[in-house]
């Protein structure tokens, strides 16, 4: 099994997509010679040429619209938004067009396209380059929202997204690009059934921690803390946010009786609030021994200074404290 970064794993997946379908192209800003703002598409231009690796002007609206038009006419586009914050310039093609067309036209068309973008904070890029806007898209019927957390699941989820017949918002947290691990480079899957499956990544019985994107890595590091060595902690990586696999979380909570949700995004109208409300209104309600807690980013734009950035985003220490609070006060 080759060892690679998430960025490289995504590139491997992109290559397989390009190899498997000759209508597939990648379009976006600085994805060619520059290799992408985060280096993900580095080398693809040399390998596939300008017809398929399409550097665009700085025009997010048409980048997304281009994907919609291509998708409804039998192609399979993958487009990149560079920093996912710029997706706000492409909201009409994504929200009013891509998400709606299949339903609105009575099923006459599919819109199989992927919009990739780098999300999240931690690099000091400040308020307009650090957002975690994933929950916006979960609110829109017709879109699927995918948030990998490491090289392997980024590879697998991107391929699943590619074979899915729907528009996919694929949010790659900036801090996962350089994470390195061994990756099984499997073939294109037959279907996209893994979309909508969350995954128990650590088994335990005292508390369930649900999370997604890079925060899963923060959680996994936090639970290694010495002061938690007597606790049995279950960690769930949600992986796909829309559709959201609440069943796995509900089953886990029935076992652990406690739920802590951790996310980088602010809490209001977020994945965390949705998940908690689903769990509380499910059969797991009677198993809960504690009110579920949401540890989320502060309700503030992302500051630029490092010490402020780490104040806004939940840190390992914050997670450790929360876990103890929830277990110790039983």
């Amino acid at each position: 099994m080759p060892e690679m970064t998430t960025g490289q794993a995504i590139k491997e997946a992109l290559s397989l997509c390009l190899d498997s379908n000759n209508t597939t192209f990648i379009a976006g800003e600085d994805i060619g010679v520059y290799g992408g703002a985060f280096g993900v598409t580095d080398g693809l231009l040399e390998k596939y040429g300008e017809e398929r690796i399409k550097d665009t002007p700085i025009s997010e609206d048409v980048i997304a619209g281009l994907a919609v038009g291509a998708a409804i006419t039998g192609s399979k586009p993958i487009v990149e938004m560079q920093f996912s914050d710029f997706i706000v310039n492409a909201m009409d093609p994504i929200v009013n067009q891509a998400a709606k067309l299949h339903f609105m036209y009575g099923g006459a068309v599919n819109v199989p396209m992927i919009v990739r973008g780098a999300s999240g904070a931690g690099t000091g890029a400040a308020a307009q380059h650090s957002q975690s806007l994933e929950s916006w898209f979960c609110h829109v019927p017709g879109l699927k929202v995918v948030t990998p957390s490491n090289p392997q699941n980024a590879y697998d989820l991107l391929l699943a997204s590619f074979v899915d017949p729907n528009p996919i918002i694929f949010m790659e947290h900036k801090l996962i690009y350089k994470l390195k691990s061994e990756v099984t480079l499997g073939p294109l899957p037959k279907d996209s059934s893994i979309l909508g499956n969350s995954k128990v990544v650590l088994e335990g019985s005292d508390i369930t921690i649900a999370s997604y994107s890079n925060m899963v890595n923060t959680v996994l590091n936090a639970v290694k803390d010495d002061s938690l060595k007597d606790y049995s902690i279950e960690v769930i990586d949600l992986l796909t946010l829309s559709p959201l696999d609440t069943e796995t979380v509900i089953t886990s909570v029935e076992k652990t009786h406690k739920l802590l949700m951790c996310q980088e995004a602010p809490g209001s109208s977020s994945i965390g609030t949705t998940l908690i409300s689903e769990v509380v209104s499910s059969r797991a309600f009677n198993s809960l021994k504690k009110p579920p807690k949401l540890l989320a980013g502060l309700h503030s734009p992302m500051p630029s200074a490092k010490h402020l950035e780490t104040t806004v985003i939940p840190q390992e220490e914050d997670i450790v404290i929360k876990i103890k609070e929830m277990i110790d006060n039983e």
Partner: peptide
Amino acid sequence: YCRGRGGSMH
């Protein structure tokens, strides 16, 4: 200028 909240770009 922005109390450390904006940085270079803002």
